[in-house]
Design a protein around this nucleic acid. Structure first.
Lengths: 236, 236
DNA sequence: CGGACGGTTGAGAGTTCTCAAGAGAAGTGG
DNA sequence: CCACTTCTCTTGAGAACTCTCAACCGTCCG
């Protein structure tokens, strides 16, 4: 795994791909300039770990590009993925001592990193930023709670169908019920860890969806949703 | 179900049981006075519904006493409880159009209610309050994610043992590994809805824990944890 | 006393997991 | 460029767990 270089931002935030979608969206030029001063851009290789479960929470970040996972382990060592983080999402645990989960890049990723203490101070001094962060956290809590329904009340087929639809949605490739094709940022094992299933069950469900014409699997890491409306029905 | 009276706060916040634990904790006297002006105290009977899934989010509140549940339904009508809310917790969805879950009092409860729009305005004008709310929301998100591990990766025994321990913890009755006895605010069906199990499985697990000496069940709505350390082991 | 309700218990079915083997793709070194 | 290794994914068979359906028990209340 190569050690990627860490450098101060060379581009201004104003050219940032997520300038208007991330929590920085409401800041004025002066504020953005200040934030620029404490942030740095960092590239992560696929599979690279950025934070560790239980470790001191040193960093927070905005995701510029790529997909990352948040995960935790049960006492007997089984992994459960707690969430996936996409471009413009906020990453890390501000105002917290330790990170309650590990964070790993699933694809190559670009993130805009801050020392947590720097960020905490900046946020407390800029209520507009803190407000954005609050709205985002509330939205994330809503999403997480919806995921609980999936984990607690859905069967394997419903879980896999829901997963594929949400993935298309969050990757921004979802057309209005036309077929969509995209690269899966997760391995079968990781999908299982998101859904609270085993790898075999995920594999069987995907095969079944393929055999029944709902999806195609052109390669291991690619999927095509042939009939999103059908998947919606299967998702329950 | 009696219609409980709604009245402006007669007691000042300074005598409020949760004054130092709720999100109001950091406000000074002047600010508290203002907040007092837009809030009212309300008593809920056990079983009374305060918010409805999908409805406009009209109210937010602080819980003063009692336990409430947040719940949502899967497409085929099965209920999943998304969270339990205890004294000093914040309730409702600020800065949101609709409530993503229904809220129902499980026990008789006292809450301190605000019109959401009043509260939103007040929060935006008082960053210290908004900061408290952010910290609470972040903590709630952490707790919710931990619950995901339970739903996704635990078996029935681990779920029930974890549930009993968390309940004792949040009710504040948990001694350091001595036996504890408390009233369950939930029916068997509701416990099942929290844990993503059926009522029969919950019942069987409780019976088994009783037969093996880990707990006692003096009545339907009471439980005694005879050996919390043993439960910790069973919780995994 | 009889009904309603919540909870418990039992038996069998169904789904998912576990264990095991094999196929396919990707990477390594000669 | 091809054997070889390794890793991921798929498939199968049987076990285990939880669910479903059904009956029953105890308590509360009219």
């Amino acid at each position: 795994m190569p050690d990627m270089p860490i450098s101060r931002l060379t581009t201004t935030c104003s050219t940032c791909a997520i300038r208007n979608r991330a929590i920085c969206a409401d800041l004025n030029d002066a504020e953005i300039g200040l934030l620029n001063g404490i942030g740095r851009r960092r590239t992560l290789a696929a599979g690279e770990q950025v934070m560790w479960e239980g470790d001191e929470a040193v960093l927070v970040a905005n995701v510029i590009e790529g997909v990352l996972k948040l995960s935790s382990h049960s006492a007997d060592g089984k992994e459960q993925i707690l969430g996936l983080v996409y471009p413009s999402d906020f990453l890390g645990r501000p105002f917290g001592e330790t990170s309650p989960y590990g964070v790993e890049a699933l694809t190559e990723a670009h993130i805009c990193v801050f020392e947590r203490t720097d960020f905490d101070r900046f946020a407390r001094e800029h209520p507009r930023l803190e407000h954005k962060l609050l709205e985002r956290t509330l939205a994330e809590l809503d999403r997480t709670r919806r995921w609980m329904v999936l984990l607690g009340r859905m069967n394997a087929e419903q879980k896999v169908a829901s997963f594929l639809l949400e993935m298309a949605e969050r990757l921004g490739v979802r057309a209005i019920d036309g077929p969509v094709r995209f690269a899966l940022p997760l391995s079968r094992q990781q999908i299982a860890d998101v859904l609270g299933l085993t790898i075999e069950t995920v594999s069987r469900q995907l095969t079944r969806l393929r055999n029944e014409g709902a999806i195609e699997l052109p390669s291991r890491r690619e999927v095509m949703l042939r009939d999103p409306a059908d998947l919606e029905v299967r998702a329950g």
